[in-house]
Design a protein around this nucleic acid. Structure first.
Length: 504
RNA sequence: GGCCCGUUAGUCUAGCGGUUGAGGACGCCGCCCUCUCAAGGCGGAGAUCACGGGUUCGAAUCCCGUACGGGCUACCA
């Protein structure tokens, strides 16, 4: 006899995979958050994997904090990450509008449906009363949700009070006789909530606007969402929402709850942890490919080895089965390393373009110069790309090529220019370079290699002195290449200039 | 308080009952390369698989409990 399966397995097949429709529904009360971005990536990847639709819906029901500027920023960040949506702002679609503030009619209709189904009742309790009773209940131990007092008011009286203009909200009448609410989460497996632990929560506020748990379900039904993929801060909301789905007569989608992303201190990622928005990382010089790669693998794995993964491989392989259940700490060090890998892999032409754009934006180069010096920039590009982890490191690394004067940092002056032999080294190097006819990396190197021995100095002493003379710093791109790129005239001039403040 | 979720090295993870004296990656340490810094190569330290019971010939893997962390319990989302 085959063994009996006692517990349901996480199962993505409970809905027809040909009709996958998922949505990412950010609230435009801020920019696209790192955690939100990961949720968006998983939604997107799942839709693409199954040839489904990826819908972007803007949950702008909080009028106080929602702004159009935030909405635009979120759209920009999504595009920057390469997460294209099939329906939503700018994309259209048959299930719009895609802003919740434009869907109030749907919510009103939803309420009518629930009223017709006897699934809701008006509640006239005031916030103060509720607070008092809630606290008392909690102190007594046990259930501390709404005590369902207004559920006892008969329909006629309720209607009279409403007609009279009494302020009221609409609450869901939780079917007390129902079995426990269970569902198979695609990531966590079977999850059960005792029906008695669910209170008659508010669906419609006294001002007539829907609460999150109501609006979301109305929209998910109307938009025919097949899979709800979201953060696990919504796991406890799920049984409530399932009740609303049922009351509405809608089909309950499959749920997949992602764990949270934490800061290094094990607390929920927030402003205190530094940059938390996707655009902030963009401005810090991170590449979209790196962010996508890092976030993809922060909570999902392809196998036991893969750390570098591209968009296509993600789409070909994504599944909820391999999404991890536990929270993940956002590790900036690893992201930075990964960004460096992508920078190094970038074709030189592309890197040169991005570098030009950056330098132009910084005012170190004009657009015209960038074009004229294209060849020169192409030579510089690989020297820089190999040494940085973030694009924003570029200006400080190559600044000395573009300035007229060299600023020596204190450490370089003390540890190099003031060292015995530095002056002689510069004299000798100047003399050798002055006599060079072909001023190219190879010839420069060939000529300078002999200098240390001739002066009976260590190579390090000689070359560091030159480096500081040219760049002002103890760290720079490779010396011979830098001399080549700087050009003969500037090189000689800087050597002479540095010579005056050096020790013999 | 109640309900729910989670727990493999500092971090992200692999592992879905025996081939694991727990694999990979970041970070860390050392060596090599070397004009600096990187990059690269090689090597190393680091995990009593939260803890305690059980099931089993055998458990990181299944079950129960405890601890710790998190979420929900709002006329926020």
């Amino acid at each position: 006899m085959p063994c009996t399966r006692t517990q349901a397995e996480p199962n993505e097949e409970s809905h027809d995979m040909d009709q996958v429709r998922v949505r990412f529904a950010p609230s435009p009360t801020g920019h696209l958050h790192i955690g939100g971005a990961r949720t968006a990536i998983y939604n997107w990847a799942f839709a693409r994997r199954h040839g489904g639709d990826f819908i972007l819906r803007i949950d702008d029901t909080d009028p106080e904090r929602s702004t159009d500027e935030n909405t635009q920023a979120i759209l920009r960040a999504m595009e920057w990450l390469g997460l294209d949506w099939d329906e939503g702002p700018g994309a259209g679609g048959d299930f719009g509008p895609y802003f919740q503030t434009q869907r109030s009619e749907l919510y009103a209709q939803g309420l009518v449906t629930l009223q017709a189904n006897d699934a809701v009742y008006p509640c006239f309790c005031t916030a103060d009363e509720l607070k008092g009773r809630r606290e008392a209940a909690r102190e007594a131990g046990g259930f501390a949700g709404y005590d369902r007092r207004c559920r006892a008011i008969d329909t006629e009286e309720a209607a009279a009070r409403i007609a009279r203009g009494d302020e009221h909200v609409w609450r869901l009448a939780v079917p007390l006789e129902r079995d426990d609410v269970t569902f198979v989460d695609a990531i966590r497996g079977e999850t059960a909530f005792p029906i008695g632990s669910l209170d008659d929560f508010i669906l419609v506020r006294s001002d007539g606007t829907p609460t999150y748990n109501f609006a979301t379900v109305v929209d998910d039904v109307a938009m025919e969402i097949s899979h709800v993929v979201r953060g696990d801060d919504h796991l406890s909301n799920t049984p409530r929402q399932i009740l609303v789905f049922e009351a509405l007569g809608g089909e309950v989608p499959t749920f997949a709850h992602l764990s949270m992303i934490w800061g290094a201190d094990g607390k929920r990622l927030s402003k205190r942890h530094g940059a938390t928005s996707v655009e902030a990382y963009r401005d810090l010089g991170y590449l979209p490919e790196a962010i996508l790669n890092y976030l993809t693998l922060l909570g999902w794995s392809l196998d036991d080895k893969t750390t570098m993964i591209d968009r296509d491989t993600l789409v070909e392989n994504f599944s909820f089965e391999r999404v991890s259940k536990n929270p993940a700490v956002f590790d900036t060090d690893k992201l930075e390393w990964m960004n460096g890998v992508y920078i190094r892999e970038m074709p030189v032409e592309e890197f040169a373009d991005r570098m030009s754009a950056l330098l132009t934006a910084q005012g170190m180069l004009t657009g015209a110069e960038a074009e004229e010096r294209r060849e020169w920039l192409l030579k510089l590009a690989p020297l820089v790309s190999e040494r940085i982890k973030r694009m924003d490191e570029i200006p400080s690394m190559v600044g000395f090529f573009f300035s007229d004067t060299v600023e020596f940092d204190d450490k370089a002056r003390k540890k190099v220019l003031d060292k015995a032999g530095a002056g002689c080294a510069m004299d000798a190097v100047e003399a050798v370079l002055k006599g060079l006819d072909t001023f190219e990396t190879e010839s420069i190197e060939a000529a300078l290699r002999d200098v240390p021995e001739a002066l009976d100095l260590k190579p390090r002493i000689v070359f560091q002195a030159v480096r500081v003379a040219l760049s002002g710093s103890m760290v720079s791109p490779p010396l011979f290449e830098s001399i080549d790129l700087l050009g003969k005239e500037k090189t000689l001039q800087r050597l002479r200039q540095a010579r005056s403040s050096a020790t013999d």
